[in-house]
């Protein structure tokens, strides 16, 4: 059984069809891209999978368990984490707190322990802090741990967001335009970084990106959507030569750049 199975996912905003009959299967360790012109419904698909929206029709199965109807925090606890197109860190909180809070669903101590601070509380809090520091160190962010998230430069905020998503211990990581606003040098680092995460954390990554250089170089398979419908699915080479894809992107020179 595939790890993630999306079947006939369809979503309407009132009378507007945002996503229609979207299907996808992913295995542990896969790196899949999702591309399409602006407004094609890519982020909506992520919102449907993570439970932010409830699909009009269709199923999202993680290890055979249907996630439709669950609240977002339940889905995240089961192993799907995401980042956002526009950074959504908890700005006033420290970088360390941003990471620690993402472990909310793994906390074992109860409300009473959180007030009385017994031995069990301290054991667990120390462990949470230690793991958070390890994660930050891996991203080279441990020096900034006590800095408010809003004070970090843009590129580092992106990294904190990915670290925060990883802190929830996902098996599937959804990255929504991670390269947005980055310069070519930063993008090269990012590509390296994404592949490193996949190796180190042994997870599947599903990525929305407009930078064709990223998509074409790191994804094994690419899904192309336009007006909510899938128009192509295949390897980067197949996508590059697909006439329907070229038509959807007509006038854009994105493919030449890659």
């Amino acid at each position: 059984m595939p790890m993630l199975q999306i079947k006939h996912l369809t979503h309407y905003f009132g009378g507007l069809r945002a996503v229609y009959d979207f299907n996808l299967e992913m295995e542990q360790g896969d790196l899949v891209g999702l591309i399409g012109p602006n407004g094609a419904g890519k982020t909506t698909i992520f919102n449907l999978v993570t439970g932010a929206y409830r699909p009009t029709e269709g199923e999202v199965l993680l290890d055979g368990e249907n996630l439709v109807g669950m609240r977002p925090h339940e889905i995240t606890t089961r192993g799907i984490a995401r980042t956002f197109q526009t950074i959504r860190l908890w700005n006033e909180l420290s970088v360390l707190d941003n990471i620690c809070i993402a472990r909310a669903s793994r906390i074992q101590y109860g409300l009473v322990d959180s007030i009385l601070h017994g031995k069990r509380y301290w054991d667990e809090e120390r462990q949470i802090k230690r793991r958070a520091f390890d994660l930050l160190a891996m991203f080279g962010l441990d020096k900034e741990a006590h800095e408010a998230a809003k004070n970090l430069p843009y590129g580092e905020q992106r990294k904190v967001e990915i670290a925060r998503a990883l802190a929830t211990e996902p098996r599937l990581l959804l990255l929504d335009e991670p390269a947005a606003g980055m310069n070519p040098g930063e993008i090269s680092d990012l590509m390296e970084f994404i592949q490193q995460i996949r190796r180190d954390f042994n997870l599947a990554i599903w990525i929305i990106e407009h930078q064709m250089r990223v998509i074409m170089n790191i994804c094994e398979r690419i899904k192309v959507v336009d007006f909510g419908e899938t128009i192509a699915y295949g390897t980067p080479e197949e996508i590059r030569n697909n006439p329907r894809v070229i038509e959807a992107y007509l006038g854009e020179e994105a493919f030449d750049a890659a």
């Binding site: 956002f84 959504r88 909180l93 809070i101 959180s114």
Partner: peptide, 20 residues
């Protein structure tokens, strides 16, 4: 860490919910 989730709600509730 449990209680700090409250501050995360203030900062961005949707992000808090999506981060478990």
């Amino acid at each position: 860490t449990f209680g700090k989730g409250i501050e995360a709600i203030r900062e961005d509730e949707i992000a808090a919910e999506l981060m478990s």
